[in-house]
């Protein structure tokens, strides 16, 4: 049971660390938006196409943050390490208060 507690606790800490990449993702998105504002200020007539491109750029910059969220969700709700730790993983994991 101790091993299970250790595995679950470490998984939760790992999920928190995986979510830390949101810091840099947010910085990157802020940079995209700032440059879009610059471009619109320089060329207001191109606002429409700049906005579309900015949204696509934001979506692309978001990818790494989304990978973090997916890894965190995997560690919390479908942890592969717990499966390896116990042969009876499905029954044990279903008893966890997740």
């Amino acid at each position: 049971m101790e091993a299970l507690a250790l595995a679950v606790g470490l998984s939760n800490i790992a999920a928190a660390i995986a979510l830390l990449n949101g810091i840099l993702t947010t910085l990157g998105q802020g940079k995209v938006a700032a440059h879009a504002v610059d471009a619109i200020a320089r060329q207001p007539e191109a606002k429409g196409s700049i906005t579309t491109t900015m949204l696509i750029g934001c979506g692309l910059a978001e990818t790494s943050g989304v990978y973090g969220i997916v890894i965190a969700a995997l560690l919390l709700f479908a942890n592969p390490f717990l499966d390896r730790l116990f042969d009876l993983a499905p029954t044990l994991v279903s008893m966890l208060p997740l």
């Binding site: 989304v66 990978y67 969220i69 997916v70």
Partner: peptide, 16 residues
């Protein structure tokens, strides 16, 4: 994979 994870992660994160 990157396309599907982008959509899934965003919507799933909002739902959570």
């Amino acid at each position: 994979i990157s396309l599907s994870f982008r959509l899934f992660g965003n919507i799933f994160g909002g739902m959570v």
